[in-house]
């Protein structure tokens, strides 16, 4: 049995915003019956065509697909289109208190439907895949070639998901996109894409900035936690959440395998060293149980 969080269970058993919006401004459809999950997202904008005032969904899929769709509709309401576009699949998973890694593709599907809806509203195509075994890509004009024939997934889409989620193994790519989960024939190609995205763009060695405004500092702390620290914890089945930043004091709470772990003190020190390294040298990391 999957270890779903109470929030996932709640959004599955009592999904919010199921249905359709007859006069929707934007509709995003991804997935297919063949793939085993599909999502149709409806978005309604305010009179200024700026803020999302309503969102509804229909989903064919497992509990986490339904919960991810429900979460997404709750998250986008009240946001303008650019803010909505900034929602990542990890944000959806976080909103739900986390998803089993094997189920991360459900959150990706949500993010993707949103992107398609907004792109179509703005009159251009999004880098999506078709999920369609029979009919080829849903967006034939889009550039890119199909990598995973079983699930109809293009290199462009894969590169995007690899980059946003900083995926390092083909197995992770399968969990996030399904690619490689059918016949497995494309796994070597997926490895190449990972190398291309994660290896070929070596980042300049990052350095601690000289001076930071408070706002910038907070942003940077969040960025380092997301990019450098949480993926390390995920690898061991753990996670952390940023609770508060007060001057140089950063409060974090450990989740999943890290919660109550005897060595969480060491983990907190590791976080502190990393933050001192990349943000500011006076940072103090405190573990709170919340």
């Amino acid at each position: 049995m999957w270890d779903y969080t109470p929030i996932v269970k709640d959004h599955f058993l009592n999904p919010r915003n199921v249905g359709d919006i007859p006069d929707a401004d934007a509709i995003g459809e991804v997935g297919s019956l063949a793939c085993g999950d599909a999502l149709k997202l409806y978005i309604k904008l305010d009179d200024n065509k700026d803020k999302i005032v309503d969102a509804k969904f229909q989903t064919f899929g497992c509990a986490s697909a339904i919960a991810s769709s429900s979460a997404l509709t709750e998250m986008v309401k009240g946001k303008n289109l650019d803010e909505a576009l900034a929602i990542s699949n990890q944000d959806i998973a976080d909103f739900l208190g986390g998803l089993p890694e094997e189920k991360m593709h459900c959150s990706v599907m949500g993010q993707e439907a949103l992107e398609v809806a907004i792109a179509k509203y703005r009159g251009h195509e999004a880098p999506v895949h078709s999920h369609d075994h029979d009919h080829g890509p849903a967006y034939p004009d889009q550039e890119g070639t199909i990598v995973c024939k079983c699930f109809g997934i293009t290199d462009i889409f894969l590169k995007k998901v690899i980059e946003t989620n900083r995926l390092t193994t083909p197995e992770q790519v399968t969990h996030f996109t399904k690619a490689g989960g059918g016949c497995g024939g494309c796994i070597p190609k997926i490895k190449e894409l990972i190398d291309e995205v994660m290896g070929a763009s070596p980042e300049e060695p990052r350095k601690r900035p000289e001076k930071l405004t408070n706002m910038k500092k907070m942003q940077l702390i969040q960025e380092v936690l997301e990019r450098d620290i949480r993926p390390l914890l995920w690898a061991d089945g753990g996670d952390l959440e940023l609770i508060d930043i007060d001057g140089a004091k950063v409060q974090v709470a450990f989740r999943k395998a890290c919660a109550g772990c005897a060595s969480s003190g060491n983990t907190a020190r590791m976080v502190e060293i990393k933050l001192r390294d990349l943000v500011a040298e006076d940072i103090v990391v405190e573990e709170v149980s919340q």
């Binding site: 199921v18 359709d20 019956l33 599909a38 999502l39 149709k40 229909q58 989903t59 064919f60």
Partner: peptide, 8 residues
């Protein structure tokens, strides 16, 4: 089925 786009 009520929730599924195909069912609807």
């Amino acid at each position: 089925r009520q929730m599924s786009p195909f069912g609807r």
